[in-house]
């Protein structure tokens, strides 16, 4: 079973995403912010990361940049999932090494489609 780390400061979003991902046969872990996510990744790199942008402590883009500098940090497929929906944010995310980008609101269809674009399913 593939591992997916869901990083979002909203408990509701984490719960919704987790339910969809578990239906897609992912094993899920959760983190509330970038700092928590980074320390979890330093222990075990997941196969996929669903990543919010705006979070306290460490935001999504700073987490992504830090992740890609870690040893093995180039491995996880990172899918942003955020309300930021302008071209500037999307290109910044891609430049920092994001593999796909979901603009909220999302549903299971979009999550499925984007995970399959990213080669995860």
């Amino acid at each position: 079973m593939k591992q997916c780390l869901v990083v979002d400061d909203s408990r509701v979003i984490r719960k919704v995403a987790r339910r969809i991902l578990e239906d897609m046969e992912f094993n899920c872990a959760e983190a509330e912010d970038g700092a928590q996510a980074l320390s979890q990744c330093q222990k075990t790199m997941p196969d996929a990361i669903l990543l919010d942008w705006n979070m306290p402590v460490m935001n999504g883009i700073d987490f992504l940049k830090a992740l890609r500098r870690e040893s093995g940090g180039d491995q996880p497929v990172v899918v942003f999932c955020t309300t930021e929906n302008d071209m500037g944010h999307i290109t910044e995310a891609l430049r920092a090494g994001a593999n796909e980008y979901i603009m909220k609101p999302f549903d299971s269809e979009i999550l499925n489609a984007k995970f399959s674009e990213a080669g995860l399913v």
Binding site: D86, M87, I90, M103, A113
Partner: peptide, 19 residues
């Protein structure tokens, strides 16, 4: 936004669409 997230890889969205 919903339509461009169905089937379109984000790299192609950035390359061929304007907001």
């Amino acid at each position: 936004q919903f339509e461009v997230q169905r089937g379109l890889p984000v790299q192609l969205l950035v390359k061929y669409f304007q907001k």
